[in-house]
Design a protein around this nucleic acid. Structure first.
Lengths: 220, 220
DNA sequence: CGCTGAATTGACGGACATCAAGATGTGTGG
DNA sequence: CCACACATCTTGATGTCCGTCAATTCAGCG
């Protein structure tokens, strides 16, 4: 169930220090106190009613679907300022998990749509966010028909755009997460990182910190 | 540009015989006269402003993206009663093409969203259609991480649900279309069809007409 | 009929998965 | 601060699925 929305255990407790002045896309309307989730905690589960929409205040989140045979698909990654949980209609088809410690603002979907009826700006923001989500899914699908180096290239370019600081990408997710997002194995991810580094297309501080030395080479 | 919306050439002409009593999901609001497109005609192009939303009255439509190197990705298939063109925000990231002769009702997106402000039912239909589109994209992405037989299986099950009549699936699209939708080659599609037939999982009247003899085997 | 594009079938190679071993990093407790 | 344990990541050897290239069959149409 969606007990985690009100959970108060050690990791998922309400954070009294949360900065509620942070200004995400829906911050003016999602005014609830952020809820904190520890690394690898589930925020919502597959098949739960999709009654809430979430704004990630800080941290990193992945959406996950596990197939009967154990294969795992990552639907997407979300970072500070992103909205997630909008993915579906009636019930979630993916679960959402915190990758690192994350804090999340929650709003009832029904509240949001009711507000959207009265406020044109909210309605438009909702449309925009949905359109972005659809665009993201399109580019994800597009990636899944490419070769392994191309997939990793697209991934790194996407991450560069979304979370790079001073040209350094600090990847919060594991190789396994990347592999399941790209639809390849962890070994292929690792090997491809090595190849890209040997070509000086990228540089690796450590396995989680990347610099793009030649971004245009990644596009091809 | 989006000239085809008003195009009047031999194939894309306005069809005086169109049955405007057909009742698709938005039929009560998309009241324009259907426009007819010949097989393989473009309905809208990639990068065009996404100003219109389309309801397919009859026929079959594919959305297509062609990569710089010539690889082709099919985003989705649409059949009678389906809404398409909603895929994106500001401009289309795919083009839409009629697979067979098709007739299409068109409405300005801005008209639709204006109507949605006044009419709660329209707003909800729009939400539902968008949610379905997102769900479709999710299951498409999920398919792209599977093996070739699994991809074709998912595809056939999807088609069975959407266009089967008396247990017979009449596929309007070519093997190349299927291949580009599934992210595999036309040869692999063909071989997999043959294998499924030899297992009596499916039966083929001809290359375009399929019967599912053992649907549960397709799921695996 | 013969022409043309679509679909099937075959032979072969390559990209990526699988299986397995090592290396590196990280947290915990002494 | 070190030592051990455990997880993560990398690297290597081998296998296999599917892509590529090519030939043949089939279906529709003038």
């Amino acid at each position: 169930m969606y007990a985690q929305v009100v959970q108060t255990d050690v990791v998922g407790r309400i954070d009294p220090l949360a900065d509620s002045s942070a200004h995400g896309p829906l911050a003016r309307w999602i005014t609830s106190v952020p809820i904190k989730f520890g690394a690898n905690r589930e925020i919502y589960g597959e098949k739960e009613p999709a009654d809430y929409v979430y704004e990630l205040v800080h941290g990193a989140v992945r959406t996950v679907k596990v197939l009967p045979d154990g294969r795992r698909q990552i639907g997407g990654f979300y970072f500070a300022g992103d909205i997630f949980g909008l993915e579906d209609g009636h019930e979630h088809s993916f679960s959402a998990e915190a990758i690192t410690v994350s804090s999340v603002r929650v709003i009832r979907r029904s509240t949001l749509t009711r507000m959207a009826r009265d406020d044109r700006e909210i309605a438009e923001r909702l449309m925009t966010i949905t359109a972005q989500e659809i665009a993201r899914l399109h580019s994800h699908a597009l990636m899944l028909i490419k070769t392994a180096p191309e997939r990793l290239g697209s991934f790194l370019l996407e991450m560069a755009e979304r979370i790079a600081l001073d040209g350094v990408i600090e990847l919060p997710m594991s190789r396994q997460d990347i592999a399941d997002y790209l639809g390849i194995t962890i070994e292929t991810v690792s090997r491809t990182f090595t190849i890209l580094e040997s070509q000086s297309t990228i540089a690796l501080f450590n396995s989680r910190a990347v610099i793009l030395r030649n971004p245009s080479a990644l596009a091809a």
